[in-house]
């Protein structure tokens, strides 16, 4: 499979594959068993985004920024507390459960830990045949053949079908997880830190594989990672999240060359090996609790450029250049 670097770019069209408007998720609004006073945790707060067919949208941010929650919301694995979600023009947020079950074949997920995402008691063949039967109605030899074809696509062979997950390394398991996600012939995949648990030499293989498959099938991908250098390799556009809110969103090349939000700059400079010479914009403190976010701009408590006005109103996500959005009132900063 050869995928050329600049072939098969995203297809901008009137209707994006995934469209989210004002998507929010607050957890624990009802209060848990031991909660003193129920205080909702706003994991994702008013996020709007489009993902075109064949586009890779990278999502970066620290732990607690809401990356994974956003991924699950887009698949409707969890219900939003506010906002709407459309998939290829269909209103996914209002779809009844029965219809949603059939619709799910269009959307799949790949998780971080390939040791936890495969059933240790199922052979790889059985793990692949299950979605083939459920979503594509394949049985018997046809299902086996399709499973073998899937394994070949991810760089494994048909003889692996009879083995159990324990026989495979982390990288191979992640390939199997990818094969399983592809079984239903989805249009959209959420990959949540898919290479974070892998060794670097294996990580590169899995990223290249994902990129090849994404391009040859024209898949749309939400690629969630804490590692900005990995996202840079695979994403067409990048969304930077902080405390559930979009800080910045831009085409990858633009974002890495001309980051406009202080948080993006701080994240980039924090990554080792990225600030050769010069002083690093090092963030003090840690991400605040999402149950008690700062007023105004949520990033202001760690932002070295915060001014009085930052505490007053929530900054709008403004388009500072075509396709380049930022939620920061300071237009006087140069990075």
């Amino acid at each position: 499979m050869s995928a050329h670097a600049n072939a098969a770019g995203p297809q901008a069209s009137a209707v994006p594959l995934v469209r989210a408007r004002g998507l929010s998720k607050a957890f624990g609004a009802s209060g848990g068993l031991f909660a003193k006073a129920p205080k909702p945790v706003r994991a994702v707060d008013d996020v709007s985004l489009d993902i075109e067919q064949g586009e890779v949208l990278g999502v970066v941010g620290e732990s607690g920024s809401g990356k994974s929650t956003l991924g699950r919301l887009l698949l409707r694995l969890i219900e939003p507390t506010a906002g709407t979600l459309e998939f290829a023009g269909e209103n996914l947020s209002a779809m009844p459960d029965g219809a949603l079950r059939h619709f799910r074949r269009n959307m799949q997920m790949i998780f971080q830990d390939p040791f936890a995402s495969l059933n240790p008691r199922m052979t790889i063949g059985d793990a692949l045949v299950e979605p083939l039967r459920l979503h594509r109605g394949l049985h018997g030899t046809a299902a086996r053949d399709a499973a073998a074809a899937l394994l070949t696509q991810v760089g494994l062979t048909a003889e692996h079908l009879h083995r159990y997950p324990r026989a495979f390394s982390g990288g191979q398991r992640q390939r199997i997880a990818i094969a399983r996600a592809l079984a239903s012939q989805p249009k959209f995949i959420v990959a949540d830190e898919p290479v974070s648990a892998l060794d670097v030499s294996v990580q590169a293989d899995v990223i290249n594989l994902l990129q090849d498959l994404q391009q040859s099938f024209g898949l749309s991908l939400l690629f969630i990672s804490h590692d900005l250098s990995v996202v840079e390799v695979i994403a067409d556009r990048v969304l930077v999240l902080y405390l559930g809110r979009v800080m910045e969103m831009a085409p990858t090349a633009t974002l890495y060359a001309h980051p406009a939000h202080p948080y993006t700059v701080a994240l980039m400079q924090a990554a080792p090996g990225r600030h050769r010479g010069g002083t690093r914009l090092e963030l003090a403190g840690e991400i605040p609790s999402p149950s008690n976010p700062p007023s105004g701009c949520v990033f202001r408590t760690r932002c070295p450029f915060a001014i009085g006005a930052c505490a007053e109103t929530r900054p709008a996500l403004r388009e500072k250049a075509p396709g380049h959005f930022k939620a920061c009132i300071r237009d006087d900063l140069a990075f």
Partner: peptide, 24 residues
């Protein structure tokens, strides 16, 4: 070579990551 070092989009074309064939 297989460690992403930034600049993957430099120059307009996208560079692929190198990988090490085989496993540990």
């Amino acid at each position: 070579d297989c460690t992403p070092h930034g600049g993957a989009h430099a120059g307009g074309t996208r560079r692929r990551l190198q990988s090490i064939p085989g496993g540990l």
